[in-house]
Amino acid sequence: MITTGIEDAYRESGALVHTLALRALGSVDEAEDIVRRVFASAAAGGSLDPADLLHDAAERITGDLERRVRAKLAALDDPTLGAEAVTDDRAVVAEADRILVRASLDRLAADDRDLLDRALVHGVPRYELAMALGISEDELEARLRDALLGLWHGQVPDGEHASPQGLASRALGIRVADGGQEHIRECRECRDAWRSLNNLVGSIARLPSSGPMVEPRPGLWDEVRVAVDAGPPEPEPDWREEARRDAERAHRRRTLVMSVALVAASVFAGLAVVLSQLMFEPDRASIAEAPLQDPRNGGAETGAVQVVAGEDGSEVIVVDGPYAEYPDAYLELWLIADGAEPVSLGQLTSGHYEVALPHSVATAVGATLEISREPWDGDAAPSGDVVARATLG
């Protein structure tokens, strides 16, 4: 059942929430949806204070704007989608504060409202304004100070602190000879109160950028009543968390696309090598061949090696297998013939390797070929583990 408190709050602040939503979202339907959500949430235990209602609306509006813009970016497949918000939530909150100030001004006496408007909004010099009103400048300044305090809803410092009148005068730029400057500099409470009053003066001065209040249509209250009677609404998703998840999904999508592209490029390059060998390299006569076996793994096959005839009749050793570069070591190819010292045939950095037989070795037929994993220690002699071995028969 609807409570009188919610109806009174709607009567007082419904236009404020509706105006803020309409200015920010630019859609009557979306603005009315914000009104229903704000008051249904307030009825379920939220605050009915106008400032709290407006700030709740600002949070919901920002979330709606965020999701709207991100949906457009996703539809455009924009690659710059990031974790940071793409809407200016501070601008929405600032507009909410201006609406509150305008509502407070409307509740002031007409003379005080006109005085603040002429002095702060239109910037009429005080001596000129005092002459137009037929009062002294001191009386004008007292009236300005009292009107400002009538708008202010901040916390008045208790105890031995600067007076609210003195703080308001300083916020208005009125000279104060009460000797309280040092106290304000050292007292956090007085400094916060002065800053609040000073911000209020700035908000009043910026009011011309804010348009008039837009009252909601008469039938909207009935819809708000239905939303309130329906019970607490579903919790609103956190738009900041949604933005973070969207950014993570976009990053994963870009990473996947890049990975697929790299794999495709690698496959294409491999196919290009094979095709080039098939199309442009003539068949070479095989002199000897043997499987490469891993002595660490019971002689499991780990590639193949063959000796083929080069164009000039020399022998060329061809190694194929699952070999690649290592970050902490390298693969060295060794030829051991007739019990002689191992002869280095160079480093393997890929799955296919060809090297001409050194002139110091008559033939590779009958020799043993070993691949060892060598540490980067500067030692040219074989000292690492043998990862593959074959005897060329």
Rank of each mutant, 00 (worst) to 15 (best):
97 D>S: 11
53 L>A: 03
272 A>H: 10
158 D>V: 05
38 V>M: 04
119 A>I: 02
21 A>S: 12
18 H>T: 04
65 L>N: 05
97 D>N: 12
327 P>R: 09
143 R>W: 02
52 D>Q: 15
218 P>A: 04
321 G>D: 00
23 R>G: 05
262 L>Q: 15
313 G>Q: 06
151 L>R: 03
21 A>R: 11
321 G>W: 01
51 A>Q: 14
259 S>E: 14
290 A>G: 11
316 V>Y: 01
263 V>A: 11
100 L>N: 02
84 E>T: 13
123 G>H: 13
37 R>E: 13
149 L>C: 02
57 A>F: 14
119 A>W: 01
110 A>C: 01
32 E>I: 03
4 T>K: 12
328 D>G: 07
254 R>D: 10
212 P>H: 07
121 V>I: 14
274 V>P: 00
359 H>G: 09
322 P>F: 05
181 Q>W: 04
262 L>A: 15
316 V>E: 09
380 A>P: 15
270 G>D: 13
267 V>A: 13
67 R>F: 03
37 R>Q: 14
80 T>D: 12
160 E>G: 03
80 T>L: 13
180 G>C: 05
370 E>F: 00
327 P>A: 14
105 L>W: 04
278 L>D: 09
341 E>C: 01
100 L>E: 09
61 I>Q: 04
211 G>C: 07
309 A>P: 00
79 P>D: 03
288 A>Y: 07
302 T>H: 03
316 V>T: 10
285 A>W: 06
372 S>E: 01
360 S>T: 15
194 W>S: 10
106 D>G: 14
184 I>V: 15
147 A>C: 07
337 A>L: 06
101 V>Q: 03
22 L>V: 08
202 G>R: 11
249 R>H: 09
223 E>S: 13
258 M>L: 15
285 A>M: 08
380 A>K: 08
118 R>A: 13
116 L>K: 07
261 A>G: 15
305 V>C: 05
9 A>E: 07
57 A>G: 08
255 T>N: 13
131 M>P: 02
301 E>H: 07
289 E>W: 05
333 L>R: 03
270 G>M: 09
364 A>I: 04
249 R>L: 14
155 Q>S: 11
169 S>M: 12
200 L>E: 01
201 V>F: 07
15 A>T: 12
322 P>L: 06
201 V>K: 04
321 G>Q: 01
24 A>D: 12
77 D>V: 12
20 L>C: 11
256 L>I: 14
366 G>W: 14
138 D>S: 12
139 E>L: 12
47 S>K: 06
207 L>Y: 07
216 P>L: 00
225 R>F: 00
214 V>Y: 04
226 V>P: 00
108 L>E: 03
4 T>N: 10
303 G>K: 08
60 R>I: 11
331 L>R: 08
362 A>T: 14
17 V>Q: 10
298 G>D: 09
257 V>P: 11
251 H>Q: 13
391 T>S: 06
